[in-house]
């Protein structure tokens, strides 16, 4: 129901920031994630950062898969 695209914060200017979407740059609002810092990642929807995320999505996926497979092997 809502596209959420990861982006990296490049520069912060008050309530706004320049975010890098893998080569595309655009101003976004960071009012919903005020603690975010330069070089950190967030999920962007309609020009607003809605949540901070970790850089490596793929790593996270690997981690939970490992967990779930281990769990089932033991059980």
């Amino acid at each position: 129901m809502c596209l959420g695209i990861p982006a990296k914060i490049e520069k912060i200017e008050g309530d706004f920031a320049i975010a890098d979407f893998n080569g595309i740059k655009r101003q976004i609002s960071i009012q919903l994630t005020p603690d975010i810092k330069v070089n950190e990642y967030c999920l962007v929807h309609a020009g607003f950062a809605i949540e901070k995320i970790t850089k490596d999505y793929a790593e996270e996926i690997k981690r939970y898969l490992k967990e779930i497979f281990k769990e089932t092997e033991n059980g």
């Binding site: 596209l3 695209i5 979407f21 893998n22 080569g23 595309i24 655009r26 962007v44």
Partner: peptide, 11 residues
Amino acid sequence: KVVIAASSMMG
């Protein structure tokens, strides 16, 4: 990759 990024950003 920029075209991919723009496409995913704007659907």
